[in-house]
Design a protein around this nucleic acid. Sequence first.
RNA 1: CGGGGUGUGGCGCAGUCCGGUUAGCGUGCUUGACUGGGGGUCAAGAGGUCGGGAGUUCGAAUCUCCCCACUCCGACCA
Length: 491
Amino acid sequence: MAKDFPTRAESYAQWYNDLVIKADLAENSAVRGSMVIKPYGYAIWEKMQAALDKMFKDTGHVNAYFPLFIPKSFFSKEASHVEGFAKECAVVTHYRLKNSPDGKGVVVDEDAKLEEELIVRPTSETIIWDTYKRWVQSYRDLPLLINQWANVVRWEMRTRLFLRTSEFLWQEGHTAHATKKEAVAETETILDVYSDFAEKWMALPVLKGTKSPNERFAGAVETYCIEALMQDGKALQAGTSHFLGQNFAKAFDVKFLSKENKLEYVWATSWGVSTRLIGALIMSHSDDNGLVLPPMLAPIQVVIIPIYRKGEQLEEISEVALKVKKGLEAKGISVKFDDRDTYKPGWKFSEYEFKGVPVRLAIGPRDLENGTIEVARRDTLEKEILQIADIENKIENLLIQIQDNLYKKALAFREDNTYSVDTWDEFKDVIENKGGFVLAHWDGTSETEEKIKEETKATIRTIPLNAKNEDGKCVYSGKSSNRRVVFAKAY
RNA sequence: CGGGGUGUGGCGCAGUCCGGUUAGCGUGCUUGACUGGGGGUCAAGAGGUCGGGAGUUCGAAUCUCCCCACUCCGACCA
């Protein structure tokens, strides 16, 4: 058990925060709401990036980079878009500092005021569509399937490490198509990429669906999302894919001549996932002993710790350890042999356990005598002594088992915490006392959704794509409904 | 923006109400010895503009006034 570390039951919020800091993933910076992502946390992000980037490229996308700054006037071109983001924009008004007249530090040079203010991008639709206008004239120029890896800034009132920071890292895809059908198909393709990534790599089961109009992205015609359930019973939006219709094409005047020689507006999509995924990863698998990482995203998959008393012992152990390391690396497994003499074995055990390394191997004098190795898995905390022969294959299989086990555990948790309710009393009871996903009928109106939010803080997380048609009555208004939607309190 | 709270060695805190020797404690750090199969023990050390400014006083971390920063709860959000 880790020292000075709260359990999830004591305080989930504090558990999360302490975990991020003590596992050395990130810390708050000098700027309110902005975090420093530390090497270990960034290594997780790099693994996510690599996997996603390959998936995007395999589905025909290419990367590009657009500017950080966006002229203020661009924002007002799409009415609902500006409304959605105006309240959280960082604005650049000047381009120069000068020495303070009182000799203390520097001040903004009022003579260096910009003609037009620049917005630090909260998302890049506007600057990208302003660019696409020049790139698209003919149906032959379409589709444009472009992604960018970037940072964005949203001046949030309340921030939490990884889950909501003023600046965050993400990828944003922006595509342009000749037909509505093709754009909708693109939106759905990406939704599948996101859910595959969440389930296969993050071991995180997600619901796929659409958002209600209230929760829709500012400027979108339809927002698709993947929605996950965290261990405290709250929902987390893990990724979104938007069908933008012709809204941005019209706002930025992006037209093309079709095969039929007709001038038409382009159809658009945009989609993104962010460093918030790291928050989702932490909250779905970790326990009261610290971080638990799925092997496929763990920067270190296997750590080897030598146990020894004297220098010569370490040499003998190292010989065996390095052989195991090499064998594992030949299978593409990332291994760290921690032979630092400056820390004790017990200290190292705790350290790697807290940092969520999936498998720990220990080799000591006893093992040398017996031809064994101690294998400990992080997900179940089980330890066993195995013969060292063929250890590489055993570990390879173990990593697959751990990945699988984490997914199954998370899925079982979600199933145990998904409730189907038919009355308002039941609804309130579950939301307030149990948490989790609540499947309930809804009359389809924004008014009802808002009333429910006011009274319970629960919102519609998604209208699942696979929902069965089922006649029923809205849990709040009693009006008729033909399928259930997913309610929950959300991050 | 509304309402609380906190600023004291790297980190976490006590001391402040009721002013008074050399500002403590835990942890971390350095050195050494013993240790080593789950965060070891002992010893010796280093490390402080008590958030900033002004005032009251023989004397201020402590009292008064002003300022600053951070943080928590609410509205907003990937």
